[in-house]
Design a binder for these strands. Structure first.
Lengths: 202, 202, 202, 202
DNA sequence: TATGAATGAGCATTCATTCAT
DNA sequence: TATGAATGAATGCTCATTCAT
């Protein structure tokens, strides 16, 4: 019962919920299981979170806020677009792999959020996406990236692959996070780069 | 009430369940809603499916069986590996987009299947994956594809992107299925092809 | 458990609920207590009633339907208005005292019904009220009843008294139902009759 | 937040509770809602009231104490019983209409009080009732009122009607409080007066 | 083949109340 | 006097599944 975790209760509940949602799914995890794992009672949880889906929202919202803030720093840096894009992509893969449960849980279960929360998170996500896309477009204007492929689609392609990583990768497996990140970024940037391919001249 | 659908009941139930699962999620759809939408009663459904999760299993199993059979035909064809891989990739994107609900539902909810069914579908999925990977490896041996990137990882990268398509693409949107497929295959093959990139010589 | 009651389950549930609501109040009676007293499980109850408040609605709706039908028969009969009104009033008191729990429960708890059900029952109640009021107005036109008192108000006065009977009267007490009914009707009609009082000439 | 209400907190809490109970019912109003509407926190309320039902008890207890004190003044006055009864009745209707929420709330929810509080309020109520009944009996002995009707029953009849007024009357409606009071008293006294009716000679 | 009444276990949520501060 | 975090028990309701017919 003594959890040996002295973080504030809201943080502890989010951490516990993230782990349990990743293990058994959002719908497969009861509020009772969450609070039991955190060593408190339901009332304590509802003191901080108005509903179970607030946990789900908050889990991804916090990660996305972190990633957005970091992305903005990379995007507004110096140097050619490709270098800034690469740095941003390395970073988003690193933080995504470091928060694999959060990513997994969210993309599996965001459809279970009530409409208005879904809208809110989609709006946050869209802002992130647009910042990333702007980097791709900058690279296309510079001539580093193929102009023939819609930047929007390329970004979706990349993040699709990233968000699904947990379906096959595990931190204790043979490939470490950095390695996977390098390969993913390589596959993405090589696919995009001028000289590589099929969309040139479009 | 008259559904105007004269397919056998099992097929009708699967079609209805796929639609409802895609709309409201697997856990958000009750058996009662499924049978009501199919115009029958619960007993009728339980006559054909032993449990609700049989529907989920069957939905993806049928699509995967179809895609596996087609993949085998492409894989065992003539010509250079890249051509066969491209044809297989075009095909899997086309069939995936044509059965977008099935793909969405399954990758969202496979974690809710009981252990043994999860194992079964993972085994089927692995067989599919390995056949696809073999094509990539053949291309690497032929020298068409970069040998530096693990074929397994490349295949996972590609299917990650494909399985997430429904998070942003819609059949009535500005890009039609063929266009999306072409871009995705382009991004994938360009990223993989010799001469494009970072993994050469590894 | 064997209830020894072979009425259909819906009727049995309503009977049990009426008794328990009268004893402990609507809010003080749990669905669990109702189904336990009826010897079934919650699922069985929810098979017939969509919500707990359906029980409350149905309890009064059924009594009111009965009383409305009887009132219409008395109202459309032959003879002077006073005689028809007296017969109707005798009848409504008799049926109200025979269903005292229903009356008590409803007038205590109707404010807990969801808005649309409250509206429905109010509309039913209004139809009943208007039929009764028409009898009073007829007596006023005939000159039997004082014209100075608004018929609406007189009817509300009378039913106020009737609906509160359960706060002081009990079937096993010294006064039997018929006696109480006679007195109430006497007090009401004497108060209304020409020659008795203060509203004449208004 | 600043309530603009400088009455002592207990009074403010009772006023707020009365309004909320009248709007949403006793069980439909949470302690949290009461304290929020009063601009304080739960601890403050529990400092003055030991339990939620103390609010309910106090709401009616205060009104009843007021009405009892006034009734005693009218009862112990000079003149014929009918005049004193009329004055008392006018007064009780006036104060009841002026505190309509209190009356409504109490007669809807008194059954939710714990046994001992219910007993206490019933005893207070009985004292009030007996004082009023004594006036009726005095009138019967004087020959002004029909002796054939039990005074107890007549008083219950009258207060039944009065306590239900809020089910149909509203201060902003076409009839003002004084008018309603006059009619109610007229209907009651005319029903009771010698020469009007059916109970004479009993 | 199909019905539909009934089960039983589970779920998210609410809430009056307490108590250390 | 007053706060607000936390409790613990209860509540209405849902739902996959069974089974006699």
């Amino acid at each position: 019962m003594a959890s040996g975790d002295d973080r504030p209760l809201p943080e502890r509940l989010l951490a516990v919920a993230t782990r349990l949602f990743a293990e058994s799914g959002y719908e497969g995890t009861s509020v009772q299981e969450i609070v039991a794992a955190a060593g408190v009672t339901k009332g304590a949880m509802y003191h901080y979170f108005a509903a179970k889906d607030d946990l789900l929202y908050e889990i991804y919202h916090r990660l996305l806020a972190l990633q957005t803030e970091r992305l903005r720093r990379f995007a507004s840096g110096q140097g050619p677009a490709e270098e800034r894009l690469r740095a941003a992509a390395v970073d988003v893969i690193e933080t995504s792999l470091a928060h694999l449960d959060e990513v997994t849980v969210f993309f599996r279960s965001m459809h279970l959020l009530p409409a208005e929360k879904q809208k809110a998170v989609r709006a946050e996500r869209r802002r992130y996406h647009e910042c990333f896309r702007a980097l791709v477009e900058e690279g296309q204007r510079e001539g580093t990236f193929q102009a023939g492929v819609p930047a929007d689609l390329a970004v979706n392609f990349f993040f699709g692959a990233v968000h699904q990583i947990s379906t096959w990768w595990h931190p204790d497996g043979p490939l470490d996070a950095t390695t996977v990140g390098d390969y993913y970024i390589g596959l993405f940037l090589d696919g995009l780069r001028t000289g590589s391919g099929v969309f040139e001249g479009r």
